[in-house]
Design a protein around this nucleic acid. Sequence first.
DNA 1: TTACGAATGATAATCTTTCCTAATCCGGTG
DNA 2: CACCGGATTAGGAAAGATTATCATTCGTAA
Lengths: 159, 159
Amino acid sequence: MSENVDSILGDQASVPAAAEFARRCRDVGLADTPQRRVIFAALTSSKDHPSAEVLHGRVKERLPRISLATVYRNLSLFVEKGLVDGVATASSHARFDANPHKHHHLICKSCASVTDVYSAAYDALGVDRLESGGFEVQEIKVTGYGLCPRCKTKETNDA
Amino acid sequence: MSENVDSILGDQASVPAAAEFARRCRDVGLADTPQRRVIFAALTSSKDHPSAEVLHGRVKERLPRISLATVYRNLSLFVEKGLVDGVATASSHARFDANPHKHHHLICKSCASVTDVYSAAYDALGVDRLESGGFEVQEIKVTGYGLCPRCKTKETNDA
DNA sequence: TTACGAATGATAATCTTTCCTAATCCGGTG
DNA sequence: CACCGGATTAGGAAAGATTATCATTCGTAA
């Protein structure tokens, strides 16, 4: 493991950033590995929103032997632990409904079930409260993540 | 094509529903095919939010020869045309950022680019305006879909 | 430094999308 | 109401993307 892991962030920032990352890993119960340092650093220095594959390409410049699976695995872990933010753009692994009324969704983090919800308060805000920088917003989706009633009681009993 | 396409919805409802579906297809420029009728009917009669694969299983009871690709293709078309609603539950085809500030996303329907946005108005509403039926909401994501500045000017020129 | 649990890399399995060709749908005609 | 022609669609297979598995290596705390 001889690559200079930190230089992605630039040499001044690298040492504090590495220490900060190590601390955040410890906080959420993840080991501080070179691969994770590089993945996180590459994402931090990305201005776009790269996909796992694109990020893998960037990371490989520093760690040529890193596996694509490692990138997928850790991005997903980072999202789960709240270290990074993920957006699903395409329809993959999607779930569908034909409910014709305007509604939003609640997704259970534990069992992945989906529930329809209605919220006049959110609908009232509308599109223009989210527009910025010339982006024309046509539709807004609000999604809540948490625990469905069934999983909530289950978690309580486990603890 | 001898299967009884409409009976999924029950015999009383079937005839009006079929005509209604044909009309909606015409409105959005899609041909009215047996496969689409069955897919849509199966989704309409589903109380859960089935995935493409699950729905394919249900549809196959009526059209045993229907291809999984057809189900994926048409669900995606239905979402695009607004006939049904889709939710991305897993991380597939996801895009990532390490922006540590609370933010939401704008997704361009044309080029799929992702932009960060901040909205005090939406953040102010908070979690409880979306809770219902005992679901414990821990986090809310607001996503806007539309046209980014670059694609907006492009569309204008095309038309 | 050691020992144990966790993470990586490689590959296989799974899921989703795309491509290509033959069949089907739709509007206008006879 | 059956038929024709152009455009759209379905099926099947192949490509692409994501996830799971497993032996080996690594990180961490004592």
